[in-house]
Amino acid sequence: MIDKSVASAEAALADVPDGATVMIAGFGGAGQPVQLIEALIAQGARELTIVNNNAGNGDAGLAALIAAKRVRKILCSFPRQADSWHFDKLYRAGGIELELVPQGTLAERIRAAGAGIGAFFTPTAYGTKLAEGKETRRIGERDYVLEYPIHADYALVKADRADRWGNLVYRKSARNFNPIMASAAKCTVAQVREIVPLGALDPEVVVTPGIFVKRVVKIAASLRKAA
């Protein structure tokens, strides 16, 4: 019998090595797997490369991981926000490397990794600073920039419900980067509100099929409220 559920967030992330590339899903707070990030902070892995849309908000979650100086490099589209003070301070001090990627290109590079695509041409950023040094090509009437996939060792995702096979469904706009990141990592760990029996998820509405998910952790409601 296959049961992908793991007893705790700590157990689910025990094997993350120093230097790993870790995708962290979510858009701001929506869909951000805060308890997995807290477990990653407790676990101690250093020199991480993080992929997220942002660079942390406030003091919790990704912001806390950055504040703990555990991130060597971050790939994101929108680091600078009103409450991104931990990233801002470290960046200005030269303590973190930033690869700025347009949001749609970030999403597609992640999707491409999960789909086994070697590279793709996108019209986004053509003629801008963010395309400097990149290969370009004119196809038909438009100019395109060559972009490569982003693969990860781990993806930390948050879903609403899972079953023991790792099928996932999400809630509202908390879906965002979760499904594509789940497909792009060697080891995807999902934190969920509820693990339901096989068959309880309508197969017509499963968003992330279990093939993309290695480990599932149920986060107690009391912990979720505290975050």
């Binding site: 589209s77 600078r80 930033l98 990627v101 949001q103 019209p123 950023a125 801008t128």
Partner: peptide, 15 residues
């Protein structure tokens, strides 16, 4: 000294 942030602006501009 500005911290750059682009979000989805470049995608919207071309798309």
């Amino acid at each position: 000294d500005a911290i750059p942030a682009v979000g989805g602006a470049m995608d919207l501009a071309v798309g």
